[in-house]
Write a protein that binds this DNA or RNA. Structure first.
Lengths: 237, 237
DNA sequence: TGCAAGCATTCTGTATTCAGAATGCCGTCG
DNA sequence: CGACGGCATTCTGAATACAGAATGCTTGCA
């Protein structure tokens, strides 16, 4: 097991649902395909399948208790998401993020997040902002306890929650998909406790700006946060 | 055949390659999987498979000359891209974009494009800007000839070219993937010639701002352009 | 005549089989 | 001793086979 052991990516496949759409109950009849998608993503993010690994289809199929056919279909899907690369004639390889990849992805993340932030400052209700603050407080509690895993999860949750305040489901979906792709590497980059401190301070600034509905301040805080993320993460690539 | 007959989406699967990375020759041994991806996307965008259609795997497999296995794998990939929806127990259905979907997607497109625009104004060389202008001029020529299909293709190409000036491959990839998803509906919304006129004027403003490396003006022009796109497109949903 | 139940058909989802490419090992030759 | 060639093995890619769910039609009954 690696440093990420125990990390549980809650690969919420369901696209975020707007509050104003009831859509009755969400009957999530788990298909094998969906199940496999989650399992594969989890195994990659938890480094059970580390970057560069060539997937042996028969072997992995046995491990997961399915035949190669549905497994291959799931692999193709995850490849389309970007976590896996398909090499013609050689099957599937776990994507190895380069420094450049990460930098570029963080830039896109920033673009999405700042766009969301502006909308959020316009649209968010007091109650919604209170919810974000509550998430932030939970995160701070885990930070105080030095509980890295829970801290990290809540950290991501705060970001996702802010983006969701924009009220744009598609944006949230894109954002969270990208967050997922960076999840493993960002978690690794968070190993040193001194790195948390800076991140926590940046989060305080973000939540404060959101509470004040100060879009420009929020954008500045988010941008700064992501630039620092790059600094924190770059060595662990 | 529908209004989009003959539209040829050049679904360039290759992620945009930076000029500063030689990477030798790109040996594009076309795999069956890749081929099927393109064919499926094309059929959807050209409305050969109109929105709402349930895909009959055996039937489509026969039409394309492949068995169900590789076809299903391709369907899963395209579903992951968002052009197809998977309905448990009922197979695959061509995604029907709602008004809300389109609005949300255009917002994300704007976020990506404006972020790219700022970087482009910083990074682009004179030669690169000249290339964009050349594309724009070709577009104007087709506009003058009232050649809707070519005009439309070049229109999209200009946008993609501007985004590429940001020098962020990942951003370009995301942008072009999203452009692809909106391609069909935007083409339909472009039917009326009077709609072209406005779009052309907006393009002039864009190219002028880029040439002046005036990031804020470019962002304004792009934003305005996408808002107008929404107006032009909204009825055809 | 309308509705419902049951049956036949079709289609999806998954497993299995088959062909051919890639890989690695071993033996032989320079 | 090193390198090249051939062979065996393994794996991917694709087709086929099979099981079970969904669908639609028909028939019988109220």
């Amino acid at each position: 097991m690696t440093a990420t052991a125990g990390m549980q990516p809650e690969g919420s496949d369901q696209p975020p649902v707007a509050a104003d759409e009831p859509a009755f109950v969400k009957i999530s009849r788990h298909t094998l395909h969906g199940e496999l998608l989650e399992r594969l993503r989890d195994m990659i993010i938890e480094s059970v399948l580390p970057p560069g690994t060539r997937i042996n289809e028969s072997q992995l199929g046995v491990r997961l208790g399915v035949s190669r056919t549905p497994l291959r279909e799931a692999i193709k899907s995850v490849a389309s998401e970007g976590l896996i690369e398909l090499v013609p004639g050689r099957g599937a390889v776990i994507k190895q993020l380069t420094e450049r990849d990460v930098r570029e992805m963080l830039e896109v993340l920033a673009a999405l997040e700042t766009a969301a932030a502006r909308a959020a400052c316009r649209r968010a209700t007091d109650a919604e902002i209170a919810d974000v603050r509550a998430l932030h407080d939970s995160m701070m509690a885990e930070y105080a306890r030095r509980n890295r895993l829970e801290y990290y999860k809540l950290n991501q949750a705060v970001h996702a929650a802010i983006v969701r305040l924009a009220g744009n489901n598609f944006l949230s979906g894109q954002y969270e998909a990208l967050q997922l792709r960076l999840k493993r590497i960002r978690f690794l980059g968070n190993a040193a406790p001194e790195k948390w401190r800076g991140a926590v301070a940046e989060h305080e600034a973000m939540v404060a700006a959101l509470a004040a509905r100060d879009a420009e301040a929020l954008v500045r805080a988010l941008t700064e946060h992501l630039e620092q993320t790059w600094v924190r993460v770059r060595d662990s690539i």
